[in-house]
Amino acid sequence: QPRLLAPWQKHRRGRARWFVEFVAEALSTFLYTFAGTGSTATYVLGNLLGVQGVGSVLQVGMAYSLGIVLAVIICLPTSNGHANPAFTIWHMLTGNSTSLYIDHNLCHRRTRLIVAQIVGAYVACLLIYVQYHDMIKEAIAGLQAKDLYDSVMFTAQGPGGIFGLYATPGANLGNVFLNEFVCDFVLAVVIFACLDPTNAFSPPVAAPWIIGFTYGIVIWGFSPASLAANSARDVGGRLAVLSLWGLPASGGSYAAIAALTNIPATILGGIFYHFIFTDSDRVLTPASLELLSATKAYEDR
C-alpha cells in the first residue's frame, strides 16, 4: 500500500470498519443492479422507441450474471457479506453453527448489511434513471400520446418496469409465487453448494462464476413469468420507482411476493442442502482451507 494510506489502514480495521463494510456491501448490490437494470433499460426502451437490436432477455441475463460475478469478487472479501438479504438473514439465524440462535452483536452488524444492500440497489436505479432520462421521457410521452400510459407504464414492458419488478397483467399470483419460490430455492441450493468448503468440485475461485451463471439460467428461463430472485434488488428498485413516480408504481399485491419470497425459499434451500448434502466426515479441500486460514489470520490481527 502507498505510505499515505498507512494511517487509514489502521483506522479502517478499527472504528471505521463498519463504514468500510457498509460501503462494500452497498457496492456489491449496486454493481449487479447497475449491470442488470442498465441492460433492462436498453431492452425496454428499445422496444418502446422502436430501436432494433439493442437488447434481449439473453443480454439481460448475461448482464445480471456478470454483475453478480463482479459483486462477489470485488466486494464480498471486504464486507464479508452476502449481497442478498435472504442469506444475511440465514446467517443471522444460524451463525457459525448448525443450531438456530441469534447473536445480538452479529444481528446489529447484519442489519446494517441488509440496509446497505437495499441502498446499493436504490442508488443504482436512480443513477440509471438519470443516465437514461431523455429516452425514458420520450418513451413516456409516446405512451401518453397513444393512451397506453395507465396500461403499460408500470409493467415489465413499461419504463417503470426498468427499475421496479411487476407481474404480468392478469397473471395468477399463486403461479407467480410458485415460480419465484422454486427459482429462489434452486439458487439457494447452488449457492450453499458453492460455499461448502468440502465440495471439491467448487473451489472458491469458481464460486462467483457458478453463482452468476445460475442466476443467468433462472433469468433466461423464468423471468417472463415474473422473477425477483433477490430481495435487495426488488426493494431497492421498488423504492426507486416510488421516489420517481409515487404510489401508482407500488406493484400492488405482487410487491410482497417479490420482496419476501426469496427469504423462506433461501432458508428452506439451506436446510435442504445441509440435511441432504452436508457430511461432517468429509475433509476440507486445500483451496478452501487456504482461504479459511487466510481469513482467520486477518481476523486475528
Rank of each mutant, 00 (worst) to 15 (best):
E299H: 06
G55V: 07
G161E: 05
L4P: 02
G164Q: 04
N80W: 00
R17L: 12
L292P: 09
Q1L: 12
S39P: 04
A124S: 06
F192C: 06
I257P: 05
S280A: 11
N84S: 12
A121M: 10
D300T: 12
L66A: 08
R110H: 04
A229N: 13
G251W: 08
L127K: 00
G142N: 11
G160K: 04
T111M: 00
N84L: 01
I210E: 03
C125Q: 04
V60N: 01
H274W: 14
R109Y: 06
F181L: 15
S79P: 10
L127V: 09
Y129M: 06
Y129P: 03
A265R: 13
A24Q: 14
G269C: 04
A240Y: 05
Y298F: 05
V72C: 04
G174F: 08
T111K: 00
A287G: 08
Y132K: 12
A258C: 10
V235L: 14
I210L: 12
A297T: 03
F22M: 13
G53W: 09
G120I: 00
P208V: 09
I73Q: 15
V283Q: 07
T261I: 12
V54K: 09
I210K: 03
T155P: 11
E299S: 07
F87V: 07
Y166G: 05
L126I: 06
C183E: 05
R15G: 03
R110P: 01
D103G: 06
L31Y: 03
V69N: 05
S65C: 10
L292V: 02
V182I: 15
A16K: 09
G14Y: 04
L76I: 13
H104K: 12
F185T: 08
D103R: 15
Q144N: 02
I276T: 12
A83V: 07
F277D: 07
L291D: 02
V23M: 09
V190C: 11
R282M: 00
Y273P: 03
S202F: 15
I210A: 07
A124Y: 02
P2D: 11
I191W: 07
A265D: 14
S288N: 05
C107N: 10
I102E: 11
G236K: 04
F154K: 10
A41R: 03
A206P: 13
G246F: 05
D184Y: 02
I118H: 02
T42K: 02
D134T: 14
L289F: 02
F87L: 01
I271S: 08
